[in-house]
Design a protein around this nucleic acid. Structure first.
Lengths: 235, 235
DNA sequence: TAGTGGTCTAGACCACAGA
DNA sequence: CTGTGGTCTAGACCACTAT
């Protein structure tokens, strides 16, 4: 995708770390060495290293060097913006998406205040893994940004469609994780096995021009929910 | 704390955004203008802007400018590394910490593999907000890194003590959020009101030289749990 | 075309760790 | 003292948006 030097350096170093060519606990070559290795300037090397640090691959220590961190606790990153399809495929489990609703609606005032528009698509889907319905996704898309949707797109991957077919760039989202009592709809569309609560992840997703375009409510069966995060202290 | 130019610029812009001197949806001055405003170079301005973007204050759009984002959904950031004391004070609610255990233990092999040491402090505390016990914290600290602890420190803030008294710098943590069935200990030390499950946040906390020094298991009452996050798509 | 942000450079000086 | 990462500069060229 990106065609710049620091990103190429970043990717090469990520590869070496993930393949354990450079072991956790050991150090990367110094910035000076990387500069010569990649025939580039130091600031460019540093951009790559800063990305590595941000994503939890290394810790930079002044006077010492860049220490490679153990990544094995991160192998299931729900963190960040990942579509269910990417997630399921990474897990290597058989998965399936069932589309329950796909319609145009006029959003509530609550939704309108979040998205800034009234004319929306509403999509309700459940996600099966190992033949159990464990996630219920309720999505709202702004119709002026997403003029077309159909069942096939929804059962495959809406994000794939929007990014590859329509060239839209998803950039960021704010999320909120809470636990709520299960609703009748949850009991109908999920295999709750008597569980009384569900984990609810709500998010507002934005494009790279900062415009909001989607509100999602993702309702997870308690016992199948897992969220991992890498948090860096900011001062 | 930090005494550098780009951080000062960052802080000034954060202030202006939080006080709404610059409204959400409008644009920051261009990098060129900021350069002259702060009498600095463009790369320095850009470092400040990148931090703003990373922390969800702005979205930079090529050819257009830096758009200020709406921050009102972020006002309760459990995200990142925040101590309970900071959190409780931000909420402005009466809070209290009860120390149940404070002892030296030899860690299990599981703990040892996570922390790389056997001799640990074990601290068990419950957290009361509005006079209800809603969080149970079980902490393990590496004894060689934290030679001394007492009840007073534990009931106030261990982080405060480690950072201000001992000059330790907490840098990053990996976290995992799941839901588990409540244990007898949970029922004893928390006001569960019959709830059968708790939200469990496990984390390994590292210092700025990348060494792990703490493992924490934080058990939250379902109905009081809330986690917010700002996620940026990385390519 | 003018203005914006994105990338890259070659150099400088500083703060810190370790021998 | 040497080597490390941290900050800062002044300039260059590019890609994109708007007019």
């Amino acid at each position: 995708m990106k065609n710049n030097k620091y990103h190429a350096i970043y990717q090469q170093l990520v590869m070496k770390i993930e393949r354990q060519d450079i072991m956790a606990g050991s150090k990367l070559p110094s910035e000076h060495d990387l500069m010569e290795l990649f025939d580039t300037s130091r600031e460019t090397v540093r951009k790559a290293l800063n990305q590595l640090a941000q994503n939890g691959y290394i810790q930079k220590v002044r006077g010492k060097g860049s220490i490679v961190l153990a990544r094995d606790k991160f192998d299931f990153p729900i963190s960040g913006l990942v579509s269910f399809k990417e997630l399921a495929e990474k897990m290597g489990r058989p998965w399936e998406t069932v589309v329950h609703e796909l319609e145009c609606v006029v959003g509530s005032s609550d939704l309108e205040s979040k998205l800034g528009e009234r004319d929306l698509w509403k999509v309700v889907r459940s996600r099966k893994v190992d033949n159990e319905s464990i996630i219920l996704d309720k999505d709202y898309f702004i119709k002026s940004q997403v003029p077309y949707l159909d069942t096939e797109i929804c059962s495959y991957s809406i994000y794939d469609y929007l990014e590859s077919e329509r060239g839209m760039q998803i950039a960021f989202a704010d999320k909120e994780v809470t636990v709520e009592e299960a609703t009748d709809e949850d009991r109908q569309l999920l295999d709750l096995n008597g569980l009384t609560h569900v984990v609810v992840v709500k998010s507002i997703v934005h494009l790279d021009d900062a415009s909001p375009f989607q509100f999602t409510e993702s309702r997870h069966r308690l016992d199948k929910f897992r969220f991992v995060d890498f948090a860096r202290r900011m001062k």
